[in-house]
Simulated assay, not measured.
Amino acid sequence: MPKPNQQLIATKLKLSRATVSRCFTNHPGINPQTRAKVFALASKLGYSPLEKAKPRAHAERLKLLDVAVLICVDLPNFDNTAYGNPGEEILTGVTEFARTKKISLDLHYVKPEDLSLDSPSYRRITPMRRRRWKGVLFIYPFPQTVMDELMAKYPCVSLVEQYGTTGLDCVDVDHFRGVNKLMDRLLAHGHQRIGFFTHHYDVEASWALRRHSAYMEKLFSLGMPYNPDDALNIGQHNKLDYDATHQRALELTRKGVTAWLCASDYEAYQLVEFFKKNGLSVPRDVSVTGFDGIRKPAGAPLLSTVQVPYREIGVTGVKRLSDLINRRFDSTQHILLDCALREGETIAAPRNSAL
């Protein structure tokens, strides 16, 4: 593979070499989405403009505020664009604010299975680059051990994920408002037995737990029964693999669950496809909702869901980190942004007859 440079990035993204160069110098004429794509590919290729700068450019760069953006994900999953790419939308917001405030971004992908800064994906980040960092943004779930190490060294802000056991600042969607909007739609259609669906993840998916908590709170507030058997992959002793989770949802649907509130759109679209393969039509036989607002895959029905404001989360997150860098011991904040209901084609009134 050719040695990574700006021309290689330009060729792969079908951009001009000048456009790529301007992305790294925070040029005001560059579209934030283009800048996010360039930064993401540069990280994947192992290219760093910080280490290639000429003396004059290096002097100019010293005037910038250097911020690390760490994305904890397996790259094949990040690049899976069949369902859209929320991570890239977050990066668009991050780069948009960074350009206006003279913030230089140092972006890296790290592996979920790496549990310390001595692990392989973190060792690739040279000490020289780490010394420049003034703060760190987390995107996606991180192991607690890694967060603890980085929080001891830098101001940190988490985007999308919340970690209730630490003093970590966070910018996230308001899970409770989002779930309430979805539950209200299902209840308005007459659903009384609504299940909660999520998968088991190697790194704890706190977003799924919060959405489940909101689901429980809604049921309790209305005096409706909560059946733990109808909540899949919640709790330490209720862990099913991918296939078993879908099979269990099918069994429960045939036993009376009329709607499934899925913790994410990705999970919801997969569940809709599984039901279809097993003879159930959505929403005629069972209703399904998601949570995210990502692009629907080809051939799938438009999902009833809520739209997470990913770009705004990126903008707000880097702004909060900038404030923390200037006020190192400011009070910890959790900033929750509202989400809009997106009407789709996967909710209908429950059928009266047994399936």
Rank of each mutant, 00 (worst) to 15 (best):
F275K: 07
H199W: 12
R342S: 07
P32K: 07
N278T: 10
D230L: 08
S331K: 11
Y269K: 05
R254Q: 11
F138S: 01
G223N: 11
H27F: 05
Y269C: 03
L302F: 09
A340F: 05
N352K: 14
E345P: 00
T305A: 04
V315H: 05
H212T: 06
S353I: 12
Y269A: 04
Y83N: 14
Q7V: 05
Y201W: 11
Q7G: 00
R99S: 05
Q7D: 00
C339P: 02
T289H: 07
K52V: 03
G87W: 01
P350M: 13
L41P: 03
R185V: 13
T346L: 07
H212M: 10
T165M: 11
P141F: 07
V136L: 05
T245I: 05
R35M: 10
E96A: 15
L159D: 01
P283Q: 11
T305L: 06
E267H: 09
G190N: 07
S206Y: 08
D172G: 08
G84P: 10
D230T: 07
E89V: 08
Y226D: 14
L250S: 04
R311W: 04
L168S: 06
R123A: 09
E88V: 10
P76I: 14
L8T: 09
Y109P: 06
I347T: 04
V203I: 15
L91P: 05
R351F: 00
E88F: 09
D243S: 15
R248E: 15
S116N: 06
T245R: 13
V160A: 10
K37V: 02
S331G: 02
I9D: 00
V306D: 09
G87P: 07
N77Q: 14
G223D: 08
L222C: 10
L115H: 12
H27M: 03
H212P: 03
P4M: 00
A53L: 14
P127Q: 06
T346G: 06
A40R: 01
G178T: 04
L271Q: 05
N238R: 14
L271K: 07
T289I: 10
N352V: 12
N26A: 10
D323M: 09
L13I: 14
A152F: 01
S304V: 12
V257T: 13
T165D: 15
P32V: 08
T81E: 13
G87S: 12
F138R: 02
N77C: 11
I125V: 13
P301E: 14
L355K: 08
F176M: 10
I325L: 03
K276W: 10
G87C: 13
A188G: 13
L240A: 09
V282Y: 04
A42I: 04
Q33C: 07
C156M: 05
E113T: 15
P228K: 12
H175K: 06
R193M: 06
H189S: 12
H246A: 02
F142V: 03
P32Q: 11
F291H: 07
L115K: 14
V94E: 08
A68E: 04
G135P: 05
V171C: 03
E343D: 15
K111Q: 13
P228H: 12
Q307I: 08
A354C: 11
G178L: 02
